[in-house]
Amino acid sequence: MGFHTFDAERADKLERTDRFQHLSAEELVGATAVADDDTVLDIGSGTGFYTDVLAEVAERVYAVDVQPAMHAYYRRKGVPESVGLLAADAGALPLADDSVDIAVSTMTYHELPDGALGDLARVLRPGGRLVVVDWTSAGTGSAGPPLAERFDAWSAGAAIDAAGFTVRRTESRRETFLVTAVR
């Protein structure tokens, strides 16, 4: 993990609705099983494209991104009232232990720094859910990061399991993978 982050100067590319072909809004909501009283953590939230999907359902969403420029873009776009922006490294989250019901990483697992999974386990409450969707190394590389910077579903699942989660679902698709887990 820990490859370069997405270029904030190209942030407008993160707002294209064709991104839903790799992870639809319905699939994200279904995989997270988000409810209206949940607190959600969106790691690598970028422009808030998927954060907005979660904010339509959850009581509170923390949008975490290491790049302040991404939050600036999100502010210009319009941040929902239920979303709090946190400029932070995913390996050092400024949240209390056991304070989050759900954590998601959409198309950013390959960017996470070492220690991020451990910190996610720290902030997720016992029984809390983790959903990771990212570009798979089994893909063609026609979209997303270079193949050399990607992981496959099973190695991601093994790392998530080793960080203290119980993996519930591991799925490889044409260009992406999905892993769901419980703390």
Rank of each mutant, 00 (worst) to 15 (best):
L95G: 05
V29W: 03
H22G: 04
V40K: 05
F20C: 01
A116H: 07
W154M: 02
I160N: 07
G139E: 07
E9R: 14
I43S: 05
Q21I: 12
V167M: 12
Q67M: 11
V53K: 04
R150Y: 09
G157I: 08
G144V: 05
A138F: 09
S45R: 07
V131P: 06
F6S: 00
P145W: 00
R173N: 05
A181E: 11
G91R: 07
V83A: 05
D37P: 08
S137N: 09
V104G: 03
V182A: 05
F20A: 13
A69N: 07
A159E: 15
D97V: 12
T176L: 08
T17L: 13
A103Q: 10
S142C: 01
V57R: 15
A35N: 14
L95I: 02
S24T: 15
R168K: 13
A96F: 07
A103V: 13
I160H: 06
L23N: 05
L28A: 06
R150H: 10
A90K: 05
A103H: 08
G84S: 15
G157R: 10
D114V: 13
Y62H: 15
T136P: 02
E81I: 02
E81P: 00
T39E: 11
H110P: 08
L120F: 07
V61A: 03
T176N: 02
D42A: 10
L117A: 03
D37Y: 10
F151E: 11
V61Q: 09
G157T: 06
D101I: 08
R174I: 00
G141Q: 07
T51G: 12
A58R: 12
A96W: 06
P80I: 06
R125Y: 04
A103M: 12
K77L: 14
R169P: 00
I43Q: 04
E111H: 13
S45Q: 09
A90F: 04
Y50G: 05
S99H: 05
A96L: 14
P113E: 04
D36Q: 14
H4Y: 12
V100L: 07
L14G: 01
G128D: 12
R10P: 00
V66K: 06
L117P: 09
Y74N: 01
Y109F: 15
L147G: 03
R76Y: 03
T166C: 05
L178K: 05
P94D: 11
V66A: 14
A55C: 04
A158C: 00
V104L: 11
A181M: 12
G48R: 02
T170V: 15
A11V: 10
T180E: 11
